[in-house]
Nucleic acid binder design. Structure first.
Length: 447
DNA sequence: TCTGGGGTCCTCTCTCAA
DNA sequence: TCTGTTGAGAGAGGACCC
């Protein structure tokens, strides 16, 4: 690292909060500080969303089943997690970024890429900006972050990882906080790393590469583009080979458009009943519809995802002629798709998901002659609604939109449970996740 | 020894129309 | 009218990321 005048091509920052969710919990409850802390689902089917460095010292990692985490670290304190609180701090974090550059690509609540080219004259070098962000986060949020500085997203991301603290059995070793990789150092920095360090190399790809004797990024680089394309497909092979040689032209993109909105849940116990699953789908569709409208988008493809007790997962999707964003309309399509799976549902379903994709902005989504959500009788038959439902849905699109708008406003004022789908009235037994509840698996206290 | 939730992207297959 | 080709779009599944 250098505090001198690094080359101007160093303009990409990757900012990553350290153990974000766990750090926030310790911030809000100082009695948790310095202890092995796990944020995630504590039930039998829960997973670890985030954990403190003290828990990492025992081998606990994100995405690990909670049962396994508890075995590794019996003394760990489990916390359910508060998504809205993390969101609130994330908003502040992104506001800090915006003080330095408008070119921010959010990756997650706790992570973003920044292109600081336009800020160099005002704030100094990219490294100066990295330190300034780190100071600001520490002073104003009382949290730690690590920042990677490089000329590309790939290297900046790997650099931020190198900047992080390390969990050791004997204690947490502080990291440098900011890590710079100059262009001439990229290959020596990159090639000794394990192949799994490259984004896009997960367990399945790693295993395939291992069979060909490829274990480091350096091995990937010398493997040759053709070999990687044959092994992993043209697109992935080419991209991996480029990345292995530090060729990464991907720009930092602010405001990436939303591609899909979905809601899925793993149940505490497998569900064998179609009617019960359809009720769950109604509530999920309601939540999806609400989020679609909040985002100002409509979609045309509805997908249901079903994971059976043996973890086999299938999806069924249908594209409807007119764009939709209303919960009941999404639910009708989803439940029709679920109905087609009736024979398999008896095996027991552990997860159900409803997703809407093929999104477009509300205004640009109106195909000529097909108003928003006004499906014709034939179209309704195609999506599988019975005659009664068809009559109910003859509310025209304008009325539907007015109704959705009114519902959204009631919920804004009186809370999300103030109004909901009639089919869910008096259905307390449906143990669906509630708004604001943990997002990392059933809590184990549900029936 | 169990595997969340919200996403994106890629590949393959099938169908349909030109 | 039939056959072959090609490209687009839909649907399904899988891998990956945080």
């Amino acid at each position: 690292m250098s505090a001198g005048s690094p080359p101007a091509e160093l303009h990409v920052l990757h900012v990553d909060m350290d153990a974000f969710f766990a750090a926030v919990e310790a911030l809000d409850d100082p009695s948790l500080a310095g202890k092995p802390l796990i944020v995630g689902g504590s039930g039998a089917r829960g997973v670890v969303a985030s954990c403190s460095y003290e828990a990492r010292a025992f081998g606990v990692r994100s995405a690990m089943p909670s049962v396994q985490a508890r075995r590794l670290c019996p003394a760990a304190i489990f916390v359910d997690g508060r998504h809205s609180r993390y969101q609130e701090l994330s908003t502040q974090l992104h506001a800090f970024f915006a003080d330095f550059t408008p070119v921010i690509e959010p990756i997650a609540l706790d992570e973003a890429y920044l292109d600081v080219r336009g800020a160099l004259r005002l704030f100094g070098s990219a490294v100066d900006i990295a330190w300034a962000i780190r100071r600001r986060v520490a002073e104003d949020l009382r949290l730690d972050c690590s920042v990677g500085v490089a000329r590309s997203k790939l290297i900046a991301k790997l650099a931020s990882r190198a900047a992080k603290p390390r969990a050791e059995r004997t204690g947490t070793l502080p990291g440098p906080g900011v890590f710079l990789v100059a262009p001439e150092d990229e290959i020596p920095f990159l090639h000794p790393l394990p192949a799994s360090a490259v984004p896009g190399v997960g367990p399945a790809t790693l295993e395939r590469l291992r069979r060909y004797g490829i274990s480091t990024v350096g091995d990937l680089a010398v493997a040759g583009r053709g070999s990687l394309e044959r092994l992993l497909g043209r697109s992935s092979g080419r991209q991996l080979h480029d990345l292995a040689w530090a060729r990464d032209e991907r720009p930092v993109v602010a405001d990436r458009p939303l591609k899909s909105v979905g809601h899925e849940e793993t149940f505490a116990h497998d569900d064998h009943d179609l009617a019960s699953l359809q009720l769950r789908a109604v509530r999920m569709a309601d939540s999806v519809g609400r989020r679609l409208r909040a985002a100002g988008v409509v979609g045309r493809t509805v997908t249901v995802k079903v994971r059976f007790g043996d973890f086999k997962t299938i999806t069924r999707s249908r594209t409807v002629p007119a764009p939709i964003s209303s919960g009941p309309v999404v639910a009708r399509v989803a439940n029709s798709l679920l109905g087609e799976l009736e024979a398999e549902i008896g095996r027991g379903v552990r997860l159900l998901g409803v997703t809407v994709s093929s999104l477009a902005g509300h205004e640009e989504s109106q195909p000529p002659g097909l108003p928003h959500e006004q499906l014709s009788f034939e179209q309704q038959l195609r999506v599988g609604v019975d005659e009664t439902a068809e009559k109910r849905s003859l509310v025209d699109s304008a009325e539907r939109e007015l109704l959705d708008d009114a519902i959204d406003r009631v919920r804004q004022r009186f809370g999300s449970s103030a109004v909901g789908p009639a089919s869910l009235v008096d259905r307390g037994r449906i143990d669906l996740k509630q708004e604001g509840e943990a997002h990392w698996g059933p809590s184990g206290r549900t029936s």
